[in-house]
Amino acid sequence: MLSYQHHYHAGNAADVHKHAVLGWMLAYLTAKPKPLSYIETHAGRGLYDLGDPAAQRTGEAAAGIGRLEQALAADHPYRRCLDATRATHGPSAYPGSPLIAAQALRPGDRLHLAELHHGEHAALTTALAPFPARIRREDGFAMAHATCPPMPRRGVLLVDPSYEVKADYDSIPGHFARLHRKWNVGILVLWYPILVSGAHGPMLDALGAAFPDGLRHEVGFAAAREGHRMTGSGLFVVNPPYGLAEEAARLSAVFEAKG
């Protein structure tokens, strides 16, 4: 896990899927005056430069945000966040999910982030310096269990591991069950890769059995390069907010139209 650095993959098609859904959910939640909490277990560095050689080396951003951005409505919350990030940090800047959340939240909302990698944690601290975030360098699941139920109780928890630790597939359903027992009103969001190996399958079977009313949304796309094992992106949402199924269907149409 400590070897993973997302800047090689920032802005890829999976990021577009995950961040478009997250942006929509936060816009929906912040449209009401009640305060909320945002918790993220594997935050990364929060801000990426798609012009960096590390990002360009894989070609994933070109196949992701470069191909899909214009297919999203100009007033989509995710597009607004992209515009704001570029206006502040330059045209090749790309916001990770912590920065998307930080831009969406209001005074009175709470932002809890965990990132274990030393370099990524330092970069995250710098990127989020203008925002009142609580950033911890510790295991994300430990932080989530210690924080839940948060105050305010209304809110979202995003789990977005690298899955370099293969045990994540086995342990995540148990983490979600425990977190839901402690925070039964929280929106719990899991991102997962669609893999040629099908390694994600048993995890999703367990989540579906535990949360039969959860929303599962997946999009497919071409492998980023020859031999790449990820051919799609998935989200599993416990307590999905009203209207998310319709937003997910709109995103499916975007990905299908772009082939």
Rank of each mutant, 00 (worst) to 15 (best):
L188F: 09
A74F: 09
I194H: 00
E40N: 03
G259L: 14
Y192G: 04
K34G: 13
H118V: 12
A74I: 08
C81A: 15
H42N: 02
A222M: 09
L235N: 04
Y48K: 01
P212F: 13
A248E: 01
I39P: 01
L99S: 02
S233I: 00
N12V: 10
L244E: 02
L204T: 10
M25A: 07
H6M: 02
P150I: 08
L188S: 05
Y38P: 06
T125S: 15
D168R: 02
I194Q: 03
L207G: 02
R225H: 15
A167T: 15
H17I: 10
R57A: 14
D15V: 05
A127K: 03
M143D: 01
G90E: 09
R136C: 10
I100A: 01
H89G: 09
R153E: 15
G155Q: 04
T231A: 10
E218T: 11
V21M: 07
Q5H: 15
L207V: 00
R229N: 08
A133Y: 00
S252A: 12
L215H: 09
W183C: 06
K32F: 06
A127Y: 03
D170Y: 09
A71M: 07
G11A: 04
E164Y: 04
L36I: 12
P212H: 14
Y163F: 12
A253P: 05
M1L: 11
S252D: 15
D170R: 14
V185S: 13
V156T: 04
N184A: 15
L29H: 00
G232H: 05
P193F: 00
P77D: 01
V21R: 01
E120K: 08
A93Q: 03
R181I: 04
R45E: 13
L124W: 08
G119P: 01
L207R: 06
A71W: 09
D15K: 02
H145R: 15
F211P: 07
Y28C: 09
F255K: 01
A206I: 03
L215W: 06
V21D: 02
D205T: 14
